[in-house]
């Protein structure tokens, strides 16, 4: 009986001795969740050249629209402005003026219920489309663009780049 009590005492001393060590090993993981907007480029887009005087992102003509994904983690905190190109940011010297047509549409949403009205409630101002991000999650926007050279003149050979501007602005 005495032996059992001694063993118990030793065990309690050991446990008591290790408890502070266990307490010291606890580590807090701190984190802050804050609202944010992330603009991602899924596809930067490509111009097809169906005829000498047209450059277009239309898939039927060998092009590809720019696809931009916007993630927000807080509803009603941001709006998005997406502006289709109205000029080339780099190109060879052009023989005439270029007429631009462009549009942005909602391609996919991660929350059909909360984001289902994005396309119908957007505000269009020229080449710019404004969407109020009233729900959290991801929205994919697609911008298509067509450039037609005046007088049906041919685009000179070379590389052409046009900018799609995606802006995420806090409300």
């Amino acid at each position: 009986m005495l032996k059992v009590n001694k063993l118990s005492a030793v065990f309690l001393i050991l446990v008591a001795g290790t408890t502070p060590a266990l307490a010291q090993s606890e580590t807090q993981i701190n984190g802050v969740v804050q609202s944010r907007c992330i603009i991602q480029t899924d596809s930067s887009g490509t111009f097809g050249n169906p005829n000498a005087y047209t450059l277009t992102t239309s898939p039927q003509d060998g092009g590809e629209g720019a696809v931009i994904r916007v993630d927000v983690s807080l509803a009603d905190a941001y709006y998005v402005n997406i502006t289709a190109p109205s000029s080339f940011s780099s190109s060879p010297s052009l023989p005439d003026t270029v007429t631009w047509v462009g549009d942005t549409t909602v391609k996919t949403v991660s929350d059909a219920t909360g984001m289902g009205t994005y396309e119908s409630t957007k505000v269009e101002l020229g080449m710019a489309d404004r969407y109020d991000l009233t729900a959290t999650g991801s929205t994919w926007f697609e911008t298509v663009s067509t450039a037609v050279m005046g007088g049906s003149k041919a685009f000179p050979g070379g590389n052409y780049t046009a900018l799609v501007i995606a802006e995420c602005i806090a409300q």
Binding site: C37, I39, T41, S44, G45, T46, F47, N49, L55, T57, A66, I68, P85, S89, S90, T143, S145, N159, Y160, T161, A162, L163, V164, I165, A166, E167, C168, I169, A170, Q171
Partner: peptide, 19 residues
């Protein structure tokens, strides 16, 4: 700030504004 491209394409310029 985008680099000059050597391809015929559109590029995406992104801007984020805090308030």
């Amino acid at each position: 700030k985008l680099k000059k491209s050597d391809r015929t394409r559109t590029s995406v310029s992104s801007r984020i504004c805090s308030r």
